[in-house]
Design a protein around this nucleic acid. Sequence first.
DNA 1: ATAAATGATAACTATGAATTATCAAATTGA
DNA 2: TCAATTTGATAATTCATAGTTATCATTTAT
Lengths: 295, 295
Amino acid sequence: MNYQIELRHLHYFLAVAESLHFRKAAERLFISQPGLSTQIKQLEQALHTQLFVRDKRKVVLTPAGEYLKAEVEYLLNHLELTKKQVQHIGNGELGELRIGFLGSAMQQVIPDLLLLLKKRFPKINTTLDELSNTAQLNAILKDKLDLGFVRLSRVPKGVALAPVFEDTFSLVLPKNHSVTVENFKGMQQFKEEEFILFSAAYSPLYYDTVMSICEDAGYVPRVSHKSVHAQTIFKLVENGLGIAIIPTQLQNGFDMAVKFIELRKIKQRAVLSVIWKLDNRNPVLKQGVDLLLRN
Amino acid sequence: MNYQIELRHLHYFLAVAESLHFRKAAERLFISQPGLSTQIKQLEQALHTQLFVRDKRKVVLTPAGEYLKAEVEYLLNHLELTKKQVQHIGNGELGELRIGFLGSAMQQVIPDLLLLLKKRFPKINTTLDELSNTAQLNAILKDKLDLGFVRLSRVPKGVALAPVFEDTFSLVLPKNHSVTVENFKGMQQFKEEEFILFSAAYSPLYYDTVMSICEDAGYVPRVSHKSVHAQTIFKLVENGLGIAIIPTQLQNGFDMAVKFIELRKIKQRAVLSVIWKLDNRNPVLKQGVDLLLRN
DNA sequence: ATAAATGATAACTATGAATTATCAAATTGA
DNA sequence: TCAATTTGATAATTCATAGTTATCATTTAT
């Protein structure tokens, strides 16, 4: 009657809570549906609390289930980290740092950081994931990631943010555009152009900053296309579909038929920041952050 | 060959890590010693890491085991809280606040706080534990306690501290002592007395403060006895074994044959503070702290 | 030297996780 | 409207493995 909760129950619970579908969850877990049903029922009995409402056609989480889901995600991720950490200590390695980054940070900042880290702490392992701003923030909140490289101006309470790299912006123009580095006067020259930008959902800060650059030049830009990949933006510019404004660093590493004009005189800068969770228990994180911010 | 870790393993591991003795741990867990041995071996295999060194007469933790112990304590306590929390939410209650306190705070502050809390959040449950300063700090670091009422001036990083109650000190004298409330001049009158104090281990801040009170009067007190219980101290004073200095509030609730002189003119105060962990995930804590500090 | 204590190993037992087969209810669609 | 499909729950059965008992090898204490 009084079951003991095991990690199995938590893993199963999470699968059902995510898919809200017993059969699909069972399939994902490589067990049969009746087995999953009984295990979930056991968990509910152990907690004396209903976690799902089964409505004979759809499954939904109760408020208690909703709460448990968030906590289980946290607990399981934390346990996963602990397992790795224990192994690292057993091997005489210091630990692992899980890093997320925006594509636009791969050009320069990330390689530099990794080299620095390897030099100072040769035994620290790293994992790298290219993720959007919001994906990184979520992963950090759930202890799936230790460190994120993002372009954000605000983060929720409990998360720290520190700028690590400042870049100018550059104009991206088709090769045959009448404006050149030599005859470039200012952004007011592009009042009538169509703009191609990174989408606001991908990076709200970037979007707002570009808007403010045009605003300072006295107009609101017409945005014809939005994309999340630099390469796509370059290709669109190359084909005369508009002009773009990008962080200067981004032009490296691509071989595109466009020309760049660095906007040194405008005040806006593309700021890359690190974010991490203040209550992160990974002992390696502190050293990584210290190292990063000492530059 | 590749075992799945379960909570059972973690509970068993913790029992062995605490007793450093397989047979005793097995007894405590109500299972047989061989069963425990195999489960621990499974855990070690799952982690590919040795956790204990069995030296054919004694068992010790490896560094990796040491690390795991701390993390497992944290995880299991956190899971325990989560279970309660889920049940509370399921019952439409808000949650549970686990409070620790010094005996000397029970007189006034704790009952007041509890009444306030019950009034503002009728659905919050509380558990109360009388613990020493350091026991509270440890319990808070391990997520076994949410809120502690202590007399401390510093706390480790990651723990917050906020004063909530300030009390004057009072002299405790035997009934027949020549000094009375009427002819009391100052602490310099007690230069030659023996002092009975709370032990420094129990409350370092109290000890230092009493020392500084005598220092201000121009002498170093001779300390003849130390205790952790107010009642013991009163009893010793009553029997002429010395005099004492205590937070004034403490005299309430005891019916002792001693007299008290409140030291209103000296600058030192007995400060009671709340402490809590900044990364505590109990959603109730924030409301409790807010309520407390708003007074 | 003998007795007591310790953790590991081997063989066995029995608990309960997981499977298969099936049901009842709800939905879909010809 | 009625068969076909989809859903989670239930019942009976199987089987993996946690836990047991019995025993050993080694160390420590008397």
